[in-house]
Design a protein around this nucleic acid. Structure first.
Lengths: 358, 358
DNA sequence: ATTGCAGATGAAAACGTTTACATTCCGCTC
DNA sequence: GAGCGGAATGTAAACGTTTTCATCTGCAAT
C-alpha cells in the first residue's frame, strides 16, 4: 500500500498537518501551499488510509443496510433508492442480506457494528427485544417495515394496511364479491398487515362477500402454486388479490397456462408495483409502493439522525401507497383501454390514494 | 462509542494483549483466562473497533463491487450471488453503482481504494488505460464482462458471443430466416458481443437470411419502443432476438398489446434468463446466464487473488451459457407443450450448450 | 522600537488495535 | 537449590490519520 501522508509531506516540503489541512479543504492554508500539496499528492497517487482516518474521526462515511433477502425486483429497487441517496451524500453502502433466522441477523448486526455510522434495518421478523440485545444504543438506526413500535427507534413503514384496504375497497366498489387473497410468509410484518387490510375492508364493506386465503411466501413460485390451487377448485373465486406482485405474476402465469383469461375469467391484483408489473399481460393492477423512495427516505431519515443524534425520534412515518389500475383487474369504471397509460415511468394512471404520510 | 479493549482488560484484570489474543482465538492463552475474558467482553458488550484493527492488520475484511447500475433483476441476481459467496467467507460487501460516465466511475474507484481488500468491477465502458490510471496496482481486482484484455487483470466473462451465436443458430435451425435483433446500449461490451455473435451465426449459416438491428438500451422501455417499431413495419420480421430479457419482455408487451401473438405471429427470444423470464406469457426462450454464479465465481476468483497475490493471473475465464427453450420462440422440434418445464428452478429444459469454460 | 495580533505552519498527542519483544512464573533436571 | 526452558502474560511500539496547541512570521498600532 505504501504511500502515506508523510511521504506527501516530505515531497512537498511541509508538515503532515499542512497536508491534512490542504487536502481536507481547511481554510487556514495558503492557496499556494495548497496548490503545491495537491499537485504532489496527485503525482504520488496518494490515497488517504480510511481506517486511520476513521480511527481518529470516529466516522466511517459508511452506512449499512440489513436486508432479509436480495431476490427479485423489490430489493433491487430498494437498494437502488438507498444507493442513490447515499451517493448523493458521499456515503458508502455496506449491504448484508440473507438472514433467515434471528441468529444470522444477530451476527450480521454485530459484524456491522463499528463499521458503519448508521444502520438501515429491514428484517420483518426482528422485534424490539432483539434490537435492545444486539444493537448498540448509540448507533443511529432506521427500521423499515417493522413491527417494532418502540419509541426508541426511528421507523419508516409502507402503508401496507391502507394499501390493501384501498385495493380491496376498489375491488368491492367495482362489484367483486368473491375474493381470494394470496398471503405472504408467516411472521412477516408486511404480509400480515396486508392481510389485515384486506380483511378490514371486507368487514367495513358490510355487504355480503366471500373470501379465502391461500398461502404463499412472496416468491413467484408460491404464486404459481396458488394459481394451480385456484385452477383445481370446483368454483373459482371471481378475483385474486396477491400480497405482492411476484406472487401475482406467478399466479397469472398459472392461469394463462391453463387458458383461464385474466381479467375476463378471473381478475387479479398485486402489491408493490415492481417495475415489471406494467409489462406483463395483462398489465397488473397493483398497489404502488414507491420502493426506491422508501429506500431513499429511510436513508435520509438515517442521515438526519446521524447529524442530530439527540433530536427526539419523530414518530413512525408511514409512506402512502396508491392504487394503480391497469388491465388485470378488469377495466376501471371509466372504461377505455388505458393503452397509453401502460408504459413509462411518468405516465398517469387511475389512482386512489391511501391515508398518506402520517 | 465508549468501550474499548482497555476497559475489557481492566475489568478482566489482564493486559490488553491477552484480551486481543483471547478474543482472536490465539492459542497461547490459558483456557481459563480466555473464558474469563470472553465472559467479561460479552458482559461489557465489547465490539472491537474495526478501523483500529484495520489500521494495524492492513485488512478490512471487505470487498467492493463496482456496478454500472442497479436496475432490474440482472443486478439483483448478481449482487445476490456475490453476497452469498462473500458471506460464506465472512467478508463484507460494499456496493457502489450508477456510474454513468468515466468520471463517476473514477471517483467511485478512488473512494473504494483503501476501504476494501479487493474489488469486483463490472463497468462495461472502462478500458485498460482507465484502470491503469485509477486502480492501484496492488489492489486485487476481478473484472466482469469487460472488454479489457490486459493480462494484468483477472477477468470473468459471460460467453456473450457464444450464447448469441447458439441462440441464432437455434433459430436458424428451426427455420427462422428473417430475424430482427434488438441491441443494447452503445459501447456496452455485453451488447456488442451479443450483436457480434448474432451476426457471426448468420454469416456462418451461409443460406439466405434477412436481418435488421433495432436500437435499445437494455431497459424494458426500450424493448417496448422496439416492439412498437416492429408493429409499425409494413412487413414484420419473423423473429425477434432481444439482447437481454428485459427488452424482450418490453417488446413482448408491445406485441401482446397490439394483439400480435407470440410465437404464432412472431417469435421472440431474449438473453440472461432473469428469474421472471419463465413467468411471462408465453414463457421466454432465452440464453441462460447463471447470473448468481457469475457473481459467486467472480468473488471466489477475487478471494483467490487476495490470498495469493503473486500467483500469475489465470487467463480470462468465460462462463458458458445455455439455451433455454420455452414457448416464446415457437415450440421446439420435439413438440409438446412443455408445461411441466416452465416452472421451478431445477426443472430441465431443452438445452444447447455454448463453448463452456475456456 | 516595542507590543500585539492574526495567519500560516509545525510538533506531537490521540484514536484502538495487533504483535514483537520482554518479563514473569512454574516445574524440571542436574 | 541453582539453573534452565517453556508457557503465559505484560509492555510498548507501530499503524496513518486528525487536531490541539505551540511556534513563527510579518505587519499594524502604539
Amino acid at each position: 500500500m505504501g504511500i502515506t501522508i508523510k511521504d506527501v509531506a516530505k515531497a512537498a516540503g511541509v508538515s503532515v498537518a499542512s497536508v491534512s489541512r490542504a487536502l481536507n479543504g481547511h481554510d487556514n492554508v495558503t492557496a499556494e501551499t495548497r496548490q503545491r500539496i495537491t499537485t504532489v499528492a496527485r503525482g504520488l497517487r496518494y490515497v488517504p488510509h480510511s481506517a486511520a482516518r476513521s480511527l481518529v474521526t470516529r466516522r466511517t462515511q459508511t452506512i449499512g443496510a440489513l436486508l432479509p433477502d436480495l431476490f427479485g425486483e423489490f430489493f433491487s429497487e430498494l437498494i437502488r433508492g438507498i444507493d442513490l441517496a447515499a451517493r448523493a451524500r458521499g456515503l458508502h453502502l455496506l449491504v448484508s442480506s440473507s438472514h433467515g433466522d434471528a441468529n444470522e441477523a444477530a451476527a450480521a448486526l454485530r459484524a456491522m457494528q463499528g463499521r458503519v455510522d448508521g444502520l438501515l434495518i429491514m428484517s420483518p421478523h426482528v422485534d424490539a427485544a432483539f434490537l435492545d440485545d444486539h444493537l448498540h444504543m448509540t448507533l443511529p438506526a432506521v427500521l423499515m417495515n417493522t413491527t417494532v413500535q418502540a419509541a426508541r427507534y426511528a421507523t419508516l413503514n409502507i402503508d401496507n394496511h391502507g394499501g390493501a384496504f384501498a385495493m380491496t375497497q376498489h375491488l368491492l366498489k367495482r362489484g367483486h364479491r368473491d375474493i381470494a387473497f394470496i398471503g405472504g410468509p408467516d411472521g412477516n410484518f408486511d404480509a400480515s398487515e396486508r392481510l389485515a387490510g384486506f380483511r378490514a375492508a371486507l368487514t367495513a364493506h358490510g355487504g355480503k362477500t366471500k373470501s379465502q386465503v391461500l398461502t404463499g411466501d412472496f416468491s413467484e413460485e408460491s404464486g404459481y402454486r396458488a394459481g394451480q390451487q385456484l385452477l383445481a377448485m370446483a368454483k373459482r373465486p371471481q378475483t385474486v388479490f396477491a400480497a405482492n406482485d411476484m406472487m401475482a405474476i406467478g399466479c397469472l402465469f398459472a392461469l394463462n397456462q391453463a387458458g383461464v383469461r385474466v381479467p375476463q375469467d378471473i381478475a387479479l391484483t398485486g402489491f408493490d408495483d415492481i417495475p415489471i408489473a406494467r409489462y406483463v399481460s395483462p398489465p397488473l393492477t397493483t398497489v404502488r409502493v414507491r420502493i426506491a423512495d422508501l429506500g431513499q427516505g429511510a436513508l435520509e431519515q438515517l442521515v438526519a439522525r446521524m447529524e442530530t443524534p439527540d433530536a427526539p425520534i419523530a414518530r413512525a412515518r408511514t409512506l402512502s401507497c396508491e392504487i394503480v389500475v391497469r388491465a388485470s383487474c378488469g377495466l376501471s369504471a371509466g372504461g377505455g383501454t388505458h393503452k397509453h397509460n401502460m408504459v413509462g415511468r411518468s405516465s398517469r394512471h387511475a389512482r386512489e390514494f391511501t391515508g398518506g404520510e402520517s
